[in-house]
Nucleic acid binder design. Sequence first.
DNA 1: GGAATCCTTTACCATTTGGTAAGTGACCAC
DNA 2: GTGGTCACTTACCAAATGGTAAAGGATTCC
Lengths: 187, 187
Amino acid sequence: MFAERGVAGTSLDDLAAQLGVTKQTILYHFKSKNGLLVEVLGLAAAELVATLEEAAAVSQPGRAQVDEIARAAFALAVRRPDLVGLLREVSRLDQAHVTSVLAVLQPVVDDALSALSSGMDSGIFRRSDPRLILLSTYSLVTGVVADPVALTAVGMQLDVRAAVQLRSAVLDFLHTSLDPLHETGTH
Amino acid sequence: MFAERGVAGTSLDDLAAQLGVTKQTILYHFKSKNGLLVEVLGLAAAELVATLEEAAAVSQPGRAQVDEIARAAFALAVRRPDLVGLLREVSRLDQAHVTSVLAVLQPVVDDALSALSSGMDSGIFRRSDPRLILLSTYSLVTGVVADPVALTAVGMQLDVRAAVQLRSAVLDFLHTSLDPLHETGTH
DNA sequence: GGAATCCTTTACCATTTGGTAAGTGACCAC
DNA sequence: GTGGTCACTTACCAAATGGTAAAGGATTCC
């Protein structure tokens, strides 16, 4: 509910009703609404990091690893769009929440950046700005699952067929961005 | 404020304080909070559509027009990130808001889809799914300006230099996606 | 059986929130 | 100058919201 309707848009009474308990039951298990939010954000960030690290551990650094991570990230986004929604929600919260979430995600981001960077150094990947690659991929993966309005605007719905298509689009973007065989995209 | 903190996260008192008036002044000019929201959404959608149509009118259909529209969209997103924020906020609102905003945006989306489609038919563009092109571009443009947390995670900030880089990334994506000279990305 | 702990509930409460009603001053027509 | 409209304010209000306090019920331990 935090992800779908926003933290401010979700009252403890709404939440409790959804769970079939009273608001006080929630406040018994969690210090406050903010305390609940902190734990939810922590779980979400941890799950995201775990998924990415697990995928990264499957292959050695290189194109196969990039594919593996992208697939895992996309699958997670489709399977758990609430995680993406939460991630987006963070930017509207207090700076404290931003920094605490960022602290969890930063290592995996830095790992990805350095992996891309060293891949470019060794010639496996075409040289470009790893930050742009990462940012663009993030936007592609999250934008598609977190914006149902955009999907319906182009006349699509997030079914299995669409998911496969969208995943291909993400992977294609990574391939054309990283494959040294392609020309540089700048004109 | 609706875009940054969300509609639910913005009280009329917050808004009034920001404007230096009282809440009742707002309610004098607008029927209710929802009435205000409707007008704000209408203005935002109209501005978005106007910008895109204006850009589309500069060139004839083809690669130049695609570039023109993409540049205009990106410039608008950078200059008015609140428009992007509002667009994202729509999906958490009532279905009535969704449909009314969609009604304004739908024509321009359909125009874009058919322009891409006919360009593919005539061989100007490489054949692929226009919906994916549009959706991906939308994600790229909006994701980058609407997610400051992601930007800081990769160690960037949205200054002029970064904006130019990001715009190039968007344009490159469109070029490699539409240019018939490139191989198809599917592997 | 009784005590204690755990979980949940019913009662409340202060504050915030969207909204109404009734004024008040400025400006304008005549 | 006087009546009327416009823009805005003060004064309220009912409902919702986050949170506290206290009171059951289970379950477990002895």
